[in-house]
Amino acid sequence: MRVLVVEDDPGLGPLIVDGLRSAGFAVDLAERLTEADFKASVNTYDCVVADRGLPDGDALELLKRWRRSGHTVPVLMLTSFSTVEDRVSGFENGADDYLVKPFAMAELTARVRARCRRGQPQSLPEVAVGDLTMDLPRRQVRRAGVLLILTAKEFAVLETLMLRAGHVVTRSELIESCWDEMSDPMSNVVDTVIGRLRRKLGAPDLIETLRGAGYLIREPA
């Protein structure tokens, strides 16, 4: 899942980015509204975390413009604007969540994860392919009942494949969903993670490589 953080504080912005990346998100950072607007126009984000008081204006104005144009990305306002009127104004103008500074990183991570899941079926907290199961709320993966230890990036790639089980997921789609703008799209990062996943998942192999097309996960024949 890919997140855009809009924060101009030189200390807080990178802290939020590092915290969300540690939780398994791909994260981009914008320090101005113009930069955020541009990045949202060329990338697909599962959630935006935005401070309101940016050097070039109030993020609420950008959000209002996004909503008028039909942009439905979930937006969490992370701000020191803490009055009831501020929060009501945020929700009335299209914010999906509102968290006041100072905040706990664990709470921000949980809220971002909930926002990212907004477009996914809430009735399916667990997905399965053969004897491979993924508990989405607990972020646990089991093969034949055995708990597997995955890195955050391995979990993100496997989650993307399992949520689209039976369908081809291209390399660019995996990079778009699981990596951020700091990643080199020409590198072999996807192949490396897929290779580690295959070793950890064991036999029979559930992940199929379709040369020139992408990757497919499905139940073994």
Score class of each variant (00 low, 15 high):
I217L: 12
V27P: 11
R142A: 09
K200R: 13
L161A: 06
G202C: 03
T72L: 13
F38I: 06
G119R: 07
D96W: 10
V49P: 04
L174P: 12
L20C: 06
R142L: 10
L136P: 01
E107T: 13
R87W: 00
S123E: 12
T133Y: 10
V73C: 13
D191H: 12
D51G: 09
P74T: 08
C116Y: 05
V169N: 10
V88N: 00
T192M: 12
V49L: 08
D180C: 08
V49M: 04
E85A: 10
T109W: 03
R117T: 03
A203I: 04
V168Q: 09
M162G: 02
T109C: 06
D58P: 06
V190R: 13
N188H: 14
P14G: 00
T109Q: 13
Y215W: 10
L206I: 06
L174W: 08
A26Q: 08
L15Q: 08
Y45V: 05
A152C: 07
D180N: 11
D96F: 11
D8G: 06
L12I: 11
R139Q: 09
S69C: 06
R211V: 14
V48S: 10
F25W: 02
L197I: 00
D9L: 01
C47H: 09
L33N: 14
I194C: 08
G212F: 01
F103T: 01
R68V: 05
P102W: 02
F81T: 00
L60D: 12
V88D: 04
F155K: 09
L60Q: 14
A106E: 14
G70D: 04
T34S: 15
P102M: 00
S123A: 09
G119L: 05
V146K: 12
A95Q: 02
A128P: 01
E173W: 07
L76T: 11
M105G: 02
A30M: 02
V84K: 10
L161K: 04
T34V: 15
L148G: 07
S69P: 00
G145Y: 05
M77F: 11
E176N: 14
T151I: 00
L210F: 02
V190I: 15
M105H: 03
A128R: 15
G19M: 01
S172A: 15
D135Q: 04
D191I: 07
L136D: 07
A165R: 12
N188E: 15
I175T: 14
M186E: 15
R139L: 01
E181R: 15
G195W: 05
L108D: 08
L76N: 06
M134Q: 09
F155N: 06
F155D: 04
I194G: 06
F91R: 12
L161N: 04
I175K: 11
A95K: 01
D58E: 13
A156V: 04
A36K: 09
C47R: 05
M162N: 01
I149W: 07
T170F: 08
F103L: 00
T160K: 15
P14Y: 03
N188K: 14
T109A: 09
E61P: 03
L108R: 05
P55K: 07
L62R: 13
E159A: 12
P10W: 10
L136C: 07
L163I: 03
I217R: 05
A106H: 10
P74R: 08
R115D: 09
V189P: 01
G70S: 04
N93W: 07
A110P: 08
M134D: 00
N188Q: 14
P55N: 06
P55C: 05
D37V: 11
T192S: 11
G90H: 05
L216A: 01
G53H: 12
R32W: 13
E176I: 02
